[in-house]
């Protein structure tokens, strides 16, 4: 199914839940409202026309200028022998969810795609997006007592960690690009 048709179906099913659709990107995506994201995710997985049974990755974005954080979910429908029409689907699509930087809460989809569990932990660790109802939302790469979210654009380096001095250049605590 073409991405245009996916967008038409999504807009027809969820109306205001779909904020925007971008079709001229290298991988077309739809921007959805954060409060309807769980229902849309379930629809994308279970509907016979969609059957997005695989979450390929979760990307977190820091939109500092708009004071927003975003998560992009890349979906793919893997053919499963003998299960409905998805033997012929093999389609890609992406969903983007934008949230306010001050209260970045997104409902977790780890109950829908189990692959999301570690991806969401990493997005939480690096960007500080809080995924509600996640079974174990703890840091996955940084130490548990790490302060701040390192990949945010306004992140400031630690100057000292557990007694180890972190001498960055000229004692700056953020890189000067």
């Amino acid at each position: 199914m073409a991405p245009e048709e996916i967008c038409i179906i999504l807009t027809g099913e969820f109306g205001d839940g779909v904020v925007d659709t971008v079709l001229d990107a290298c991988r077309p995506y739809a921007v959805v409202r954060v409060d309807g994201w769980s229902d849309i995710a379930r629809f994308l997985r279970d509907d016979g026309r969609m059957r997005f049974n695989m979450l390929q990755c979760v990307t977190a974005l820091d939109l500092l200028e708009d004071n927003k954080l975003a998560a992009v979910y890349d979906l793919f429908s893997v053919p499963v022998v003998g299960v409905g029409p998805c033997a012929t689907l093999r389609q890609h699509f992406a969903i983007r969810v934008e949230v306010d930087r001050d209260a970045p809460h997104i409902p977790s989809v780890s109950g829908i795609w189990p692959a999301a569990e570690w991806h969401e932990r990493e997005a939480y660790d690096m960007m500080g997006i809080v995924f509600d109802d996640h079974p174990n939302l703890t840091r996955i790469l940084c130490p548990d007592d790490w302060e701040g979210y390192p990949l945010r654009k306004d992140y400031e380096f630690p100057l000292e960690y557990h007694g180890i001095p972190a001498t960055t250049e000229h004692q700056l605590n953020s890189p000067r690009h």
């Binding site: 390192p150 180890i164 001095p165 972190a166 960055t168 890189p175």
Partner: peptide
């Protein structure tokens, strides 16, 4: 990682 590595010890002789 000296300049941009927020997570890297700047020389193991600090440890």
């Amino acid at each position: 990682y000296f300049k941009h590595g927020y997570h890297v010890v700047k020389g193991v002789d600090l440890v």
